[in-house]
């Protein structure tokens, strides 16, 4: 699954924003803020921290716009900045245990449940996951990034990303079966 595609009308806005047009950048912000916030909220599990990360990410994006390559996806670029911002806020690598074993073959990141659960229950189960597993699940399972891209955003090896996702799926299934709340 591709996370997003380049939206053509973004290109004109990006060009205007690059030239210093704050209004154009505001339109980009309005268009992308929901997704960036969703990503930050799921990674930080804290609405205030997520809001701070969103603000920082957009400010960094504004400053880095001259370096943005028009051929790339703006939203992927923005997400990368947002993930970096969240990681910086955590001050250093996760203290959660990181599995070293690589499950090998590529796993389909989308997880289908046998029985439907309430959206809120699933969000709570994701929130309860250890940091590393949650990051991999959010980026690969929810936002559709491939392991390579997610691993690069998180600054981890592809194998570690796969292992974290594998672990996340196992824990999620287990927690949903016994009821998270």
């Amino acid at each position: 699954m591709k996370p997003d595609t380049v939206v053509n009308f973004d290109v004109a806005l990006i060009e205007r924003a690059r030239a210093g047009d704050a209004k154009a950048f505001e339109r980009l912000y309005r268009e992308h803020v929901g997704r960036v916030h969703g990503l930050c909220l799921r990674m930080t599990r804290n609405p205030d921290t997520a809001a701070d990360c969103v603000q920082d990410a957009f400010i960094k994006a504004w400053k880095a716009l001259p370096r943005f390559e028009a051929r790339a996806s703006f939203s992927t670029w923005l997400h990368r900045i947002a993930v970096n911002t969240v990681l910086e806020r955590r001050r250093g690598p996760s203290k959660a245990e990181v599995p070293v074993e690589d499950p090998g073959e590529y796993e389909e990141p989308t997880m289908v449940l046998d029985t439907p659960v309430e959206e809120e229950e699933l969000e709570a189960a994701i929130e309860s996951l250890p940091q590393g597993a949650r990051d991999a699940l959010v980026l690969c399972g929810l936002y559709g990034y491939e392991h390579q891209e997610a691993a690069s955003m998180l600054g981890i090896a592809v194998g570690t990303c796969k292992a974290q996702l594998h672990r996340a799926r196992g824990l999620l299934k287990e927690r949903l079966e016994r009821g998270v709340r």
Partner: peptide
């Protein structure tokens, strides 16, 4: 959050708007 039932994480919304408008602070920095 709603109480909608879902069968997988792919069905969760990717967009979650922030509870307040974050633009004014960003605009100031800009």
């Amino acid at each position: 959050m709603t109480t909608r039932r879902v069968k997988g994480i792919g069905e969760l919304p990717r967009d979650i708007p922030p509870s307040r408008d974050l633009w004014p602070a960003i605009a100031e920095a800009i």
